[in-house]
Amino acid sequence: MTLDRRQILAAGLTLGAMSLFPGMSWAQARKLVFATFTGSWEEAHRDVIVPHFRKATGNADIALDPMLSVDMIAKVSAAKANPPIDVMLMDPGPRLSVIGQDLAAPFPVDDSKNYKDLLPVAQLPEGPGIFFQAVGITYNPEKVKTPPTSWDDLWKPEYKGRVGITNMNSTLGTAFMVELAKTRGGGENDIEPAFAALKELQPNLGAVAPNPGALATLFQQGQIDISPGNFNAIQILRARGVPVEFAKPKTGTIAFLTTAHITKNSPNAKLAAALIESAMAPEVQTKLMQAPFYVIPTNSKVQMDGDIARMIAKDQEELKASFVFHDWSVINQNRAGWIERFNKEIKV
């Protein structure tokens, strides 16, 4: 044997210690810490928002720390007096937790140049909306010849075993269920029709993915051909040549607003506001809207074009008309019960 166990153990312990204390190598003072989302979001934010921010602030030091909204909340609430994060990105559900737990400082609306140009729905003083995420029907155009037009298409018998969903742990899974309830006479306060519909969907279900990322990769594996999906998640697959398309259901595209928040007690509050200012700027949002990022803008001055104009909305008017928003304050109250029910009832 060339590797003895002691060596492996020693190497393992060293690696373990290094991952436990990633900050072991810090030496500088505190940078502005921007907690962004993982994957292509981080890439987009680093390539577009960060340069704009540095130009505007005279090369202020900034670090991106990608994670999920829920993890941001966990980190900040664990150290409220001295938060390790200055700017947080929130999906609508977690956003309410941030406000409820008083973890965010209000955005200085009056000093802002871009805030008033945001679409009204994005003008939120607790933390403005810097982009939209859209959930519609994603499908493999090689297998699904007629582009779907309605959520009901998922129930077509021809898609037996070809439909994928995620469980309700994710925003995507929960929003899909709420929308399902809404299209069948229920809503945020009456999820019953969604569970009934899901029971009918069972023969078609090919997979219940643990999270939206896993759901997207299932297209790549050919495991599923049609599913509710996030517009941005499929752009990554499209860029890699996976045949996936996005279709708007006739009842509307489910939209979430992603908001940016200044962490309460941040030592870098001014820089944090400057970063959010950059994220709202029309030139930043225009650049983010284009390939390869395809981020849906919240600033009304941005001219829609490219895939976003084709697949989401050709202008702000159509966007307003086709986007459906859910009431996450009601959803949050009911979600625990729904998840428990989903755990128990949905088996494939």
């Binding site: 219940v208 755990n343 494939v348």
Partner: peptide, 18 residues
């Protein structure tokens, strides 16, 4: 997958999501 629930995911779900 998302519909098979084992204890670790159950704990994760209760903390992170709920």
């Amino acid at each position: 997958g998302g519909q098979m629930l084992f204890m670790p995911q159950y704990i994760y779900q209760q903390t992170i999501t709920l």
